[in-house]
Design a binder for these strands. Structure first.
Lengths: 231, 231
DNA sequence: TTAGCTTATATGTCTATACAAAACTTTCTA
DNA sequence: TAGAAAGTTTTGTATAGACATATAAGCTAA
């Protein structure tokens, strides 16, 4: 018969109706069956379009109750978390890496608590620096559990950063990211070439493989750093 | 016949194979047809599972070339961006709002540049404060384009924050978020009850309706603020 | 009045099938 | 032999139909 209709077309048309307030916040929109008839598509196609809008937070759907336009669109921002190297290279800058220190020890209480380890746990503490066009870009201060990742004992991290090595060799199932602003410690300031107390942008990352903690990383950026996303 | 298999089951099983390195990074995994046979499901079901894994960044798919395990899983973190009020209330704290100032003016160059407006453009400048349990939580410094949103001329923002009013009344199609660390300006410090120069966590948000700029907001949080996400 | 049960209904998902589109390979042609 | 054309393979998407599941709403009985 006529042209086939893509779920994208339907999705975008419905998004437009919401944006243009033809479908008002909180209002019930037609059921899948009705929309399918209106757009001349199969219900499965309309369903896919609706699911995408729901995932984007524009609508809320409940079985039997139907679909409504979200009152307060709880929109979500998506940030891509690539390797530091890729992040730098995508900005068209050259990437350099420096290992600052590498020690096997037990961890301070704060680290143990965050990783959920007991007192005797052995950890590898690696401090390193990532540079973009020769200027400090990120100071990586990382603790790696030797119980979970014994293989790191044999890695010297002089040429490959822990970041990169772990992504390449150590699978993980869960990760937790925290971002905040802090004042640069004496050490961080020295490494990044800043004054102590300068505001820095800190990303903290914990990764786990099932219940076992793999690593805790504190990633410190100079105040020029920006984390950006669209929509 | 036998039990029907859910795309979730298939998705999770494949994720496990990747996590356990049974499917190695960079390796080609079986085609949809083969997987469908293996899991005893329809190809469409396997396809859905694979698409989710691709969306999560675990695999990369190309027509004709097949599907491979991502070498450097470019994983993405998803942050929920709710209304400040909801954000505070979800922490079990009480929410208060204070309007600090509201002026109709032309905008400073920096603002005009970011919003892409010409020199004569009229803007509403609204400064307000969001509090959690009576202590300053977020300082909102916002510029709203009067050309795009003439209706705000009639809103006094004494009880409803610009944040909330705009979400409720002004649809948008595009938004851009930027997060960074900065030193508190004298004004920001005063409003948030901090020392000038204290590190603050800043979120900048620009929203547009098709090509027209709606608003630019600078949202300043005290250094205790954390932005967290899982996976 | 209320707690529990039933029913109707909208969304959620699976299947089988078909065709579309991208991208790699091979063959043909100038 | 370069380049275009045709073929092949794999993923992408649409469809009709069926059944699954959550849940709002009505009904029943204590």
């Amino acid at each position: 018969m006529s042209e086939r209709v893509s779920f994208r077309t339907i999705r975008d048309e419905m998004a437009r109706r919401i944006a243009e307030r033809r479908w008002l916040p909180g209002a019930l929109i037609p059921g899948e069956e009705a929309l399918a008839r209106e757009f001349g598509a199969a219900r499965a196609t309309v369903n896919r379009a609706l699911q995408e809008l729901a995932r984007a937070g524009l609508i809320e759907r409940r079985r039997r109750a139907g679909t409504r336009v979200a009152r307060h669109p709880v929109r979500e921002a998506r940030f891509v978390i690539p390797l530091v190297r890729q992040e730098i290279e995508r900005q068209g800058k050259s990437y350099q890496y420096q290992l600052l220190s590498r020690h096997e020890t037990t961890a301070p209480d704060i680290v143990r608590a965050r990783l959920g380890l007991d007192e005797k746990a052995r950890l590898l503490h690696v401090r390193s620096l990532h540079l973009a066009d020769r200027s400090p870009y990120q100071f990586e201060d990382r603790w790696i559990s030797l119980d979970t990742v014994p293989a790191v004992r044999d890695v010297d991290f002089s040429t490959v950063s822990p970041n990169e090595w772990l992504v390449e060799h150590e699978p993980f199932t869960d990760a937790e990211f925290t971002f905040f602003a802090a004042a640069a410690s004496a050490e961080e300031a020295a490494v990044l070439g800043l004054q102590e107390g300068t505001p820095v942008f800190v990303g903290e990352r914990i990764t786990r493989l099932r219940n076992k903690s793999i690593t805790l990383a504190r990633l410190v950026h100079p105040p020029s750093h920006r984390m950006v996303t669209q929509l």
